[in-house]
Design a binder for these strands. Structure first.
Lengths: 236, 236
DNA sequence: CGGGCGATTGACGGTCATCAAGCTGTGTGG
DNA sequence: CCACACAGCTTGATGACCGTCAATCGCCCG
C-alpha cells in the first residue's frame, strides 16, 4: 500500500473549533487558545491512512476533529487487537513513554490537530487547568479500558456485539444529534479485532441479532430496533 | 462473611515512607509532604477485606504501601473480571467520577494511605508537579490496560499464563529485590479472573508449563526455570 | 483424626475459530 | 449498458480450545 502524506489545511483558529467544548481545549481561555493555535497544525488523513505506529518515536500528539481513528496493537505474528476508536474531541497522546505503544490510523476521512509533543508539554506544564482536564480524559479512558477488559474477558460473542452497539451508539449521541440509524464506519474486521472475535463470528452475530428483531442491518450501519433488549443482552 | 473494619495505625510521617520514591508523592517537597501527611491516614486491611466497592460514592483515594490489592468489576450475574493488581507505590483514585467504577480488596494483608478525596483534590489542584506525576501514573495504567486488552482478546490460554507470569515478575522486580522464587499471593481463581479463563484452565496450564520445564510450582509461587521460553510463549 | 478450602485432574460438551464457498454491491472497462 | 473483477460480507461445515461438571488430592487448622 502506498503511504500517502497527510494533507495540511488552513491554520483555522482554535477559537472557532467545533469540537472545542468536548476536547481538552475547553480548559483554556482565549489567550491560551491563541498560543496553542500558534503551534498546532490541522491535518487531513485519508481512509486507512496511518497516523502513527507502535514503536515509533513520539513526536506529536493529536486532537481528533472529524472522523474516526482506530487505535490498535499488533502481535509479532500479525494478530491485531483494537484497543479503542477515537472520535471528534478525543485527545491522543496521553502516553508519557518516548515511543508509541499503539498504532493509529484513520478509519474513514479524518481531520485532526497536531501538536509537537515537546511544545505541547511545555505549554501544559504550568497550566493546572489543562493538566486537570487531561487527567479527567485519562481517567475516562482508563474507565473505558476497564469496561473493555470485562467485555473481552468475560462476555460471550453475542454480549460483546450487543454491548459494542449500545456503547457505540451512546458515544455518538454524546458528540452529535441522535439519529435513527447508527452508522458503523469501521469494517466488520475492525469490529472483530475490537471485540476479540473473528469476522465470521461478528457477521453471524449481527445476523442473529437481526433475526431476533434486535437490530436491522442497513448500508453502513444498523438501526437499533429493540434498544431495551440490546441493553439486556449487553448485560451491563 | 463478616465485614471487618480496617485497623488504623500511627500517623507515620510521609517523609519516612518507604514507597515514596515509587509513589505519586515523589513529586512533592518536604513542605508539601507534611501537608499531605496532615490529612492522610494509614490503614491496614486483612486478607480479602474490601477497600471499596463498585457504585459506592467515592470519598477517598489511596496509596498502597504494602501488600497487594485486586481491582475488579462484577457483572450482575456474578462473573468477575480483575482489571489489575495494585502493588506498593500504586495510586488508586485516578477516576473522576463520583462513584467507584471498580471494586477493590486486599489480597493478603495490606497497608495503605487514605486521603479524603475532596481534600486531596484541593491539595493537588494547584500543584503542577503533582498533577504531572498523576498524569504519568494514569498514562502508565492506560498502557498496561491496553496490553491487557491484547492479552484478553487475542492470546491463547498458554500465552496468557506465560505472559502473566513474566509481567508479574517484572513488576515485582521493579519494587523490590529480585528473588529466585516469584511469589503469587493471589489465588488461582484471581489469576483466572484476571486472564479471562477458568480456574481449571489456569491450573492445567500451570501444570503443562511445569511439565515442559518452563516453571516449577512451589508453595505460594513459582520458580521461572526457563525465562527465555516463557517470554517466547508470552509472544510479546 | 476429620473437616474444609484451594488446587489439580479427568471426561465431556459448547462456543467460537478455521477453512471454504457463495453472495452483494461498487467501480471499471469494453 | 452490461460483463467483469474485486473487496467486503455472509453462510456453511468441521473441529479445537477451553468451559463445565465432577471427583480427588493436598494442606492447614481445629
Amino acid at each position: 500500500m502506498k503511504r500517502s502524506i497527510a494533507g495540511e489545511y488552513c491554520e483555522q483558529p482554535c477559537t472557532d473549533c467545533t469540537v472545542r467544548s468536548h476536547a481538552i481545549c475547553a480548559a483554556l481561555d482565549e489567550d491560551a487558545l491563541r498560543e496553542l493555535g500558534s503551534f498546532s497544525h490541522v491535518l487531513q488523513y485519508r481512509p486507512n491512512e496511518p497516523v502513527f505506529s507502535q514503536d515509533e518515536i513520539v513526536t506529536s500528539c493529536y486532537n481528533v476533529r472529524e472522523g474516526v481513528m482506530r487505535l490498535y496493537k499488533l502481535l509479532p505474528d500479525g494478530r491485531r487487537q483494537i484497543v479503542g476508536f477515537a472520535l471528534p474531541g478525543d485527545f491522543i497522546g496521553l502516553s508519557h513513554s518516548d515511543r508509541h505503544v499503539i498504532s493509529a490510523d484513520a478509519v474513514g476521512p479524518v481531520v485532526a490537530c497536531r501538536f509537537v509533543k515537546r511544545q505541547f508539554s511545555r505549554f501544559a506544564e504550568e497550566r493546572p487547568n489543562l493538566l486537570r482536564r487531561i487527567n479527567e480524559f485519562a481517567a475516562r479512558e482508563l474507565a473505558g479500558a476497564q469496561e473493555q477488559m470485562v467485555l473481552l474477558g468475560r462476555r460471550s460473542a453475542e454480549e460483546k456485539v450487543a454491548s459494542f452497539l449500545v456503547t457505540w451508539r451512546e458515544r455518538l449521541a454524546q458528540i452529535g444529534p441522535a439519529t435513527a440509524i447508527t452508522p458503523l464506519p469501521m469494517s466488520r474486521q475492525d469490529i472483530a479485532d475490537y471485540l476479540g472475535l473473528t469476522i465470521e463470528t461478528v457477521s453471524r452475530t449481527f445476523t442473529k441479532l437481526e433475526r431476533d428483531g434486535v437490530i436491522e442491518i442497513v448500508q453502513g450501519g444498523i438501526r437499533l430496533t429493540d434498544a431495551a433488549r440490546a441493553e439486556a443482552l449487553a448485560a451491563a
